[in-house]
Design a binder for these strands. Sequence first.
DNA 1: GGCACTCATCAGCGCCTGCGCATATGTCGA
DNA 2: TCGACATATGCGCAGGCGCTGATGAGTGCC
Lengths: 113, 113
Amino acid sequence: MLQAEVLKTLASARRLEILHVLARGPIEVGRLAEAIGATQPNVSQHLGVLRAAGIVDAERDGREVRYRLADPDVMVACDVMRRVLARRLTRLGAMASSGAITPPAVRINPIAR
Amino acid sequence: MLQAEVLKTLASARRLEILHVLARGPIEVGRLAEAIGATQPNVSQHLGVLRAAGIVDAERDGREVRYRLADPDVMVACDVMRRVLARRLTRLGAMASSGAITPPAVRINPIAR
DNA sequence: GGCACTCATCAGCGCCTGCGCATATGTCGA
DNA sequence: TCGACATATGCGCAGGCGCTGATGAGTGCC
């Protein structure tokens, strides 16, 4: 499943932070690292992953390298995901406030961990 | 980053397979396991994850348990992701056929792995 | 009650991944 | 060419995840 690869690439809090910053415009590695409070090698690795996935592009400028979103629609996809998430939270919230806490109609595994 | 949790849940080939099957309608665990060629405990675990994430719902029917998508929009989000993926592949394909194989304008890490 | 069936859970084990640290590579200026 | 700066890479480790096999729990039928 190819799609899983892309999702796997996005399924990282750090990488989502990075994309969030990149959504505001191109930026260099150093500034990016500082912006999200991560080490430079760490950010560089994540950017490498995102770049390998074709989600971001890099452009050298002197001794700096400026990264940018390769396809802004990635953020659109993220927004859709976020909307689904929001609706889910709303639903759960309604269930909780309506007193239907853990409606054990079935009782099914939460897979532990 | 809450969003990462949802994405992490979806970032699994098996779980995407499951969602794909569920998109065609409710189904029982056994049939689902058979449909994707996985063991029953394995499918049950994944369903547990998806259920904990609020992505699927379960309903008992006799000794069987029927699962269904809790929010069809999850598939919409997946489609958006897939579109981004498709465009990326198209772009890469164009680059390859245009002879611009590995344009080392920068040469940046592929982060191994 | 006992049995068969369906599903959930537990325990254990590789594997992969992200992290920090040290270091290599690349670039500019003197 | 040398040094300073920006970025990329290699390495080792700790934690998380998915898979399998065995077992527990819920349900219907005799």
